Amino acid sequence: MKVLIADDDPQLVRALRITLAAHGYDVIAAPDGAAAVAAAAKQNPDVVMLDLGMPRLDGLEVIAALRGWSDVPIIVVSGRTGSGDKVEALDAGADDYVTKPFQIDELLARLRALTRRAGASVGQPFVRFGDVDVDLSTKTVTRAGARVHLTPTEWRMLEFLARNPGSLVTRQALLKDLWGTDQVNDTGYLRLYVSQLRKKLERDPAHPVHLLTESGMGYRLVLDDDA
């Protein structure tokens, strides 16, 4: 699995290169945004990790450039912790966002989720988490073998999350998918439907382990092997 790391901090890049290589990744490094775009075009990485504050082209410009021709999974690794920076990066086309300093175990889990999603067969219609099975082809959900009834909106929300397992889905993306716009101000609708899904699909709705809220950003469906 080939990982492109775009960051102008040589010490961080060196540490990540050693760690990722020890876990079987082939690492390509780029010291600035322009080099990252060129390396992505030449090396065809399986996943891109990039910082936002880079010389020549910043992270957002790199994301925009890559999204012009590639669907490669992109994970932002940045010291910017504001929710506005995170939402901006995700809306620009990033698939996930990790803030510095980070735990390496968490970063590796995020990488596994992204590469699993990228490598999944388009024709694979099943998603499983806990005792829940989601059949995307027949639009059915079962829990412990029993059919679960979902409203049309609940199903569309679950389907959106299930097609992006392990990845952060922003509130704006969900609003646009569910109601055709990301300009809805009252995101209480999303909290309501997520709450209903948790009651139907989580073993302990008050302490969910699969349908997670990312504060200030959106939601994430965590499969068993992402936990």
Rank of each mutant, 00 (worst) to 15 (best):
residue 5 I to K: 02
residue 7 D to G: 00
residue 8 D to N: 05
residue 8 D to Q: 09
residue 9 D to I: 02
residue 11 Q to S: 15
residue 12 L to V: 10
residue 14 R to K: 12
residue 15 A to E: 12
residue 15 A to W: 13
residue 19 T to P: 13
residue 19 T to D: 14
residue 19 T to F: 12
residue 21 A to R: 14
residue 22 A to F: 12
residue 25 Y to K: 03
residue 27 V to F: 07
residue 29 A to K: 03
residue 29 A to Q: 11
residue 32 D to S: 02
residue 33 G to P: 06
residue 33 G to N: 06
residue 45 P to H: 03
residue 49 M to G: 12
residue 50 L to I: 06
residue 51 D to R: 03
residue 64 A to F: 08
residue 65 A to Y: 03
residue 86 K to L: 09
residue 86 K to A: 06
residue 88 E to Q: 15
residue 90 L to T: 05
residue 93 G to N: 07
residue 94 A to P: 04
residue 94 A to C: 07
residue 94 A to M: 00
residue 96 D to I: 07
residue 97 Y to T: 04
residue 103 Q to N: 13
residue 104 I to L: 08
residue 108 L to I: 04
residue 111 L to K: 02
residue 111 L to I: 01
residue 114 L to H: 14
residue 114 L to V: 14
residue 116 R to W: 05
residue 118 A to L: 05
residue 119 G to Q: 07
residue 124 Q to Y: 12
residue 130 G to Q: 05
residue 134 V to G: 05
residue 139 K to S: 12
residue 145 G to V: 01
residue 148 V to C: 00
residue 153 T to R: 10
residue 161 L to T: 01
residue 163 R to I: 00
residue 164 N to D: 10
residue 167 S to C: 13
residue 174 L to W: 03
residue 184 V to H: 09
residue 187 T to F: 09
residue 191 R to C: 10
residue 192 L to Y: 15
residue 194 V to Q: 10
residue 196 Q to S: 14
residue 198 R to C: 03
residue 201 L to W: 05
residue 207 H to T: 13
residue 213 T to H: 07
residue 215 S to P: 15
residue 216 G to I: 05
residue 221 L to G: 03
residue 221 L to P: 00
residue 222 V to Q: 11
residue 223 L to S: 13
residue 225 D to A: 04
